[in-house]
């Protein structure tokens, strides 16, 4: 693999006695989208802010193309924060113009407007924008300097499905153009669709990392079976399941074997549903394993 455009080496961040990030190693390559996943409080945002050079690490280093971060690093990155307000009284056009003026070279206004579909919004102030429109403006602001690296911190949080899909299309296009993208999201469907690689963070550490399809391929044999809760007492001893409302979710390594045992036990399978393992299942399985291990200890 070529040299990463951005690399974190043993990043640590302490706030007093609290360790928010406890030694993170991450590499990001041009033209790829890396998903940084984890529960709330896992240290994703602090990690990203150190990568963005907005916070100094307590230990470790961030390197750009193999060298320490240049003084004009901010000119090479685009940032879309999790929750950012736009200047109250400026129109979308004025805000774009302001941000373009803050960089030595900038994308053309027409290109930004077309890419983020802002044509109808240019004269509007932030208070009149919908959630999806606001996110598109924030994405346009992240792109005004034609960044090589784009940081997207939960870009589609709270958006309706169609607005999310519109943003995904823009992100896919940017990735195809060679932009390196670091994405955090709580939507596993989004991560599965957009990310080439996934890093899962827990308690300030990256606990699982790999290509998205590799993570999923570890579970190619497995299937997720959902059965009604009423069959719980009939399940053979030792069957692992998780309760999801009125349903039981069971990860089965070999579907044929499992079905045979359940039929032998006289379980009514007429309401059973079967699906492949998704990234969300991997994510949840990972955290339930961790919780179980912690419980054992």
């Amino acid at each position: 693999m070529s040299q990463p455009i951005l690399e974190a080496q043993n990043l640590v961040k302490r706030f007093g006695d609290v360790i928010a990030v406890a030694g993170v190693d991450i590499a990001l390559y041009s033209g790829e989208c890396l998903g940084l996943l984890g529960e709330n409080g896992a240290g994703k945002t602090t990690t990203i802010e150190m990568l963005e050079n907005l916070q100094d690490p307590s230990e470790g280093e961030v390197r750009y193309k193999g060298a320490p971060l240049p003084s004009n690093f901010a000119e090479r990155i685009g940032v879309m924060f999790q929750a950012t307000a736009l200047p109250d009284k400026l129109t979308v056009l004025e805000t774009l113009t302001l941000f373009r003026s803050l960089y030595p070279s900038a994308a053309s206004l027409d290109e930004l407007i077309a890419r983020c579909d802002l044509g109808d919004l240019l004269g509007q102030e932030p208070k009149t924008l919908s959630g999806g429109q606001r996110q598109r403006v924030l994405l346009a602001l992240a792109l005004v300097n034609q960044p090589e690296i784009l940081f997207l911190d939960e870009p589609t949080a709270g958006l309706d499905p169609s607005a999310r899909r519109r943003l995904w299309e823009i992100v896919k296009q940017l990735r195809a153009e060679g932009v390196a993208i670091l994405l955090t999201t709580h939507y596993m469907e989004e991560a599965e669709l957009l990310c080439d690689r996934i890093a899962i963070m827990q308690s300030g550490r990256v606990v699982n990392q790999g290509r998205t399809h590799e993570l999923l391929s570890r579970y190619t044999q497995e299937r997720i079976v959902e059965l009604p809760r009423r069959v719980m007492s009939q399940l053979p001893e030792g069957t692992q399941y998780s309760e999801q409302g009125d349903w039981l979710e069971i990860v089965v390594p070999d579907l044929n074997v499992a079905l045979g045992r359940w039929l032998d036990a006289g379980i009514d399978l007429r309401q059973m549903t079967i699906r492949a393992v998704s990234l969300e299942d991997v994510f949840l399985m990972h955290f339930s394993d961790q919780a179980a291990e912690a419980g054992d200890e």
Binding site: F73, A74, F81, T84, A85, L102, L141
Partner: peptide, 9 residues
Amino acid sequence: VLKRLQATG
């Protein structure tokens, strides 16, 4: 807004 401006360098 200040944080966003900081990110521009």
